[in-house]
Design a protein around this nucleic acid. Structure first.
Lengths: 160, 160
DNA sequence: ATGGATGCAAAACATTTGCATCAAT
DNA sequence: ATTGATGCAAATGTTTTGCATCCAT
C-alpha cells in the first residue's frame, strides 16, 4: 500500500475515533481495530465478517460486542447499515466516500460493484408530501465471471 | 366489495392454485386461504402477518407450514420476496399487477405507497457485462401523517 | 476510583429440518 | 393406497439482554 493511501486511511480511522471520543465513549483496542477495518474496507461488511476479522487480532472476542459496536457506530452516523439479500451489512457513511453511489451485487460470488448512478437525482414524480430520509437501490444479477445460461430465474419458465 | 373486484380476485386465486396444481402440488385448505390472502392483499406481507391471518381460519396452524408455503410460492414465481427494514416480506409477483412499480415506505407507520418510477428504465451507464436478474428500489421517509421536525436522522447533527 | 466496555451465558426472535401422522390425489 | 402436506419439536442462525468483571479515563 502506498504512503498516500495509508495516510488517507489513517485520517479516516482518526476521524471515526474522534467521533466516538467526542461522545464520551472509550477508545478500546477493539474499537481501534474496528475503525481501521471499516476505513480499509472497500464495500459492505456483515456482522459475521466483522467478527471474523476482529477475532484474528482479539482472541476471545464475543459476538455481542461486535453487534454493540456496530450499532453504536451506526447510531453515531459513522456507519451506514443496509439490508441485503443475505442479511444486514455495514460500511462507512457517505461523507467518508468520494461521492454517493449504488451497487451491482453478484448473486453467485457475492462481489459488489459500484454503480455511479442515483435514481433520486432523476426522480421526477415523487409525491409532494413524502419526507425522504433515505433510499435503497441495488441491482442483483451475475457478474462477468459468474454468468451461466442456467442461472435463469424460475419465473421465466413457469407459465401462469 | 363490488362484484367485478371479487371476480378479479377470484381469478387471481384460481391462477395461483392452477400453478400449484400444474406442479403436482396438492391444494389444501390452507393453500387456498393463502392464495386468497395474497390475491386480496394490496401490499407486502411478512411471514408473521401471513401466519396471524391464516391462523384465524386454521386453528393449530404452525409457523413452519407458513414458511414452507411462502418459499414454495416464491420458488414457483407466484410470490415476490423482498428484504425490508424490518425483515422479509412477500407479495404477488409483478405479472399479477397492472405494471411494475416501486415503493415509498413510511418509517413511522409502516405504510407503503406505490411509486410509478423505475430506475432501470432510466439507467444509462450500466456496465456491459453484468447480467441483471432483479433490482430493488425503495424510498424510506415519513408520509404526510407522520411528518415531525424531530424525525431528523442522527447523521445530520453529528459533526465528523 | 469510577463508570463504561467486555465476555459469558442465556434469552429472544426468525427460519429451517426431521419425523410421525394425516389427508389430497 | 400412495405420496405429499401438516403439526410438532427441536435445531439453526442472528441479534439482544443481564450481569459480573475488567480496563480506559
Amino acid at each position: 500500500m502506498k504512503e498516500a493511501e495509508c495516510s488517507v486511511i489513517d485520517r479516516a480511522v482518526e476521524r471515526m475515533i474522534q467521533v466516538m471520543s467526542n461522545h464520551g465513549l472509550r477508545i478500546t483496542g477493539q474499537r481501534r481495530t474496528l475503525a481501521r477495518l471499516f476505513a480499509e474496507a472497500s464495500g459492505f461488511l456483515s456482522a459475521k465478517e466483522v467478527y471474523q476479522s476482529l477475532e484474528m487480532k482479539h482472541h476471545g472476542l464475543s459476538f455481542d460486542t461486535v453487534y454493540r459496536n456496530l450499532r453504536m457506530l451506526q447510531e453515531l452516523g459513522v456507519l451506514e447499515q443496509f439490508n441485503f439479500e443475505d442479511g444486514m451489512k455495514f460500511r462507512v457513511g457517505c461523507y467518508g466516500h468520494k461521492h454517493h453511489h449504488h451497487h451491482l451485487i453478484c448473486l453467485s460470488c457475492d462481489h459488489i460493484y459500484p454503480l455511479d448512478y442515483c435514481p433520486m437525482e432523476h426522480l421526477t414524480n415523487l409525491p409532494a408530501h413524502f419526507q425522504v430520509v433515505k433510499h435503497q437501490f441495488e441491482i442483483y444479477g451475475y457478474c462477468e465471471e459468474c454468468q451461466q445460461p442456467d442461472n435463469k430465474p424460475l419465473q421465466d419458465i413457469v407459465s401462469v
